[in-house]
Design a protein around this nucleic acid. Structure first.
Lengths: 129, 129
DNA sequence: GGGCTTTTTACAAAGTTTTTACAAGTTGGC
DNA sequence: GCCAACTTGTAAAAACTTTGTAAAAAGCCC
């Protein structure tokens, strides 16, 4: 049931997928073995998203964790940072950082498109009809 | 997690039948193992119906619960949402979301057709007339 | 001050919800 | 059975909300 207490329990073992690497102890990020330079806020934002890979993180949670903003602050700085982060993530950006409309964002580990999976994963159907 | 489960206290254990899955904690819906994307209102509406599977829910109750509308508001937004929901539920739509004329709607868990019924296509109608 | 990062501003674009207007379906009285 | 009144279905437009983007302004730190 993790809340986003990133500050206390930061993951230490590095994140790593086909294209992206995050070394949390060194705060270093690499894309396709090429190191990319992030500013502090960009890194914090990415780290938080990556540490909750697969989970939707609501805007207010991001603003809370990364900026310390309380609930009712109106700002577009999160969007701007997401945009710059995406820019630096190059062509994979939209695969990595997903916008969940009306809620927030979600980081998804890189996953090459699968061609075969379209079939039915649902053997039960065979029994009907 | 936990930051944004639907406004009212809701069932937490997932719904699941032959074709449809609802994960109430993640607000995620899948049809035949394929994830389907619903807008918030669509999800709220479906969730409410599913949580009362088998029960008729009157229009005014749906408008109350999902929209917060009071008794005397005239709107067709419920119908429009039902329509879009049905569209996203594909071929099973009419089996799942039933219209109760003059009252409201009812969600029915999927029930595969049985073999012996298939013979005479429409026994019930045969009895009338 | 100069270079960098962060935030704001102001608008554009995209997404969602509601309304509108009418078609189609249902029901009950005749 | 047929009609009138009413309910629901549907498509498209309008209204509204959220997110994306570029550029300027404001902070920082040496």
């Amino acid at each position: 049931m993790g809340s986003f207490e990133a500050a206390t329990k930061r993951q230490v073992s590095p994140y790593n997928d086909e294209h992206l690497t995050l070394d949390f102890t060194r705060q270093a990020v690499a894309l396709d073995a090429e190191r990319i330079v992030l500013t502090r806020k960009e890194y914090d934002l990415l780290a938080l998203l990556v540490q909750h890979a697969g989970e939707i993180i609501p805007r207010h949670a991001l603003l809370m964790q990364v900026w310390g903003y309380g609930a009712d602050i109106r700002t577009r700085t999160l969007d701007v940072h997401v945009r710059r982060l995406r820019k630096k993530l190059g062509g994979y950006a939209d695969q990595y950082i997903e916008t969940i409309f009306g809620i927030g964002y979600r980081f998804q580990p890189f996953h090459a498109p699968r061609f075969y999976q379209a079939q039915s994963v649902n053997p039960v159907i065979a029994l009907s009809a």
